[in-house]
């Protein structure tokens, strides 16, 4: 069974013995490699765009559904617990939890500076972690109002300054990824068109014979098109395979090295497989169309 599948796969790489235009392996192999590399880069650009979209969505969603309340006074443990309970009763709040001193210290440690000897001397912030219904308005104002009424001096941070930056950054990532994808597709089409012209030029004698026995330009162009459809599809399979392996390695490296901030947004998802699946079909179709158009244009120059 496997041998049959492998044999069928290998047949994709071989020209039919009955192809009217002669094959040229000296051209086919390097061209396949070039298109495969472009396809791999295109797939990686597509996967990057997809991952960028997903990460931005996850991060902005996380940020929009969470707030931090910094209690400036009173700062005792019992006061903090009471404040958390008051916040928990505000409409739109889904979770309200007083942060322990130890956890607050850990947050400070995450800033990266070696604070092991001085952190105990610092007045760590007393925080309440608040979960809110995403999109709910006036929650921040309500929390400030009820805590003030209960005698607390607080600052409520709704993370809006980070959300804007994440959105701007993710939009830039998306645009760059899409532009890279478009540039690669254009480059691949131009390469195929150039190769199709070269293929016809080097087979001019065969093309002339086909014309003289009554072949229409469309027939000759179709012969070229079929060849480049196969080349594009095979190059697409190779490129998508390479991109898939690279993406998998990247995902694993990213997963093992993930921080608290990034662990909630996986680099790749199973749904990204569609990018790898359609890549050979897109590459094959684009190659075939580009080759057909280039062939017709070249044939018009012949008698």
């Amino acid at each position: 069974m496997m041998r049959k599948l492998w044999s069928s796969f290998l047949r994709l790489f071989r020209e039919s013995d009955r192809a009217l235009l002669p094959a040229d392996s000296r051209q086919v192999r390097p061209l396949t490699i070039v298109v495969a590399i472009m396809c791999a880069l295109g797939c990686l650009a597509g996967l990057s765009a997809s991952a960028g979209f997903r990460a931005a969505d996850t991060w902005t969603s996380d940020l929009k559904s969470a707030m931090s309340v910094v209690v400036q006074s009173p700062r005792g443990d019992a006061d903090l617990t009471r404040a958390a309970a008051i916040v928990g009763r505000v409409a739109g709040v889904t979770r309200s939890e007083a942060m322990s001193r130890d956890r607050a210290k850990e947050l400070l440690r995450n800033y990266g500076t070696d604070m092991s000897t001085t952190i105990d001397a610092l007045p760590v912030p007393r925080l309440i972690e608040v979960g809110v219904v995403a999109g709910q308005t006036n929650v921040k104002a309500d929390i400030e109002r009820v805590l003030k009424a209960a005698g607390f001096t607080v600052t409520v941070d709704d993370h809006s300054r980070f959300t804007g930056e994440v959105l701007r950054t993710s939009t830039l990532v998306r645009i760059v990824a899409i532009l890279a994808l478009v540039a690669l597709v254009v480059a691949a089409i131009a390469t195929i068109a150039f190769a199709a012209r070269a293929a016809l030029e080097t087979r001019r004698e065969a093309v002339n014979i086909l014309h003289l026995v009554g072949a229409k330009d469309a027939f000759v162009a179709r012969e070229v098109q079929i060849r480049f459809l196969r080349l594009g599809f095979v190059a697409g399979l190779i490129g998508a395979g390479v991109a898939g392996v690279l993406a998998l390695i990247g995902t694993l490296v990213f997963a093992f090295g993930a921080s608290d901030f990034t662990s909630g947004a996986p680099l790749l998802a199973w749904t990204d497989v569609w990018i790898l699946l359609i890549a050979p079909m897109i590459t094959g179709s684009a190659s075939a169309i580009a080759a057909n158009m280039a062939a017709r244009a070249t044939l018009r120059d012949l008698v």
Partner: peptide
Amino acid sequence: RLLPHLSVFDNVAMPFRVR
């Protein structure tokens, strides 16, 4: 002016194949 990569049969059949 035969096509060197095609068999004798396919060279002769060429007028039919292009149609």
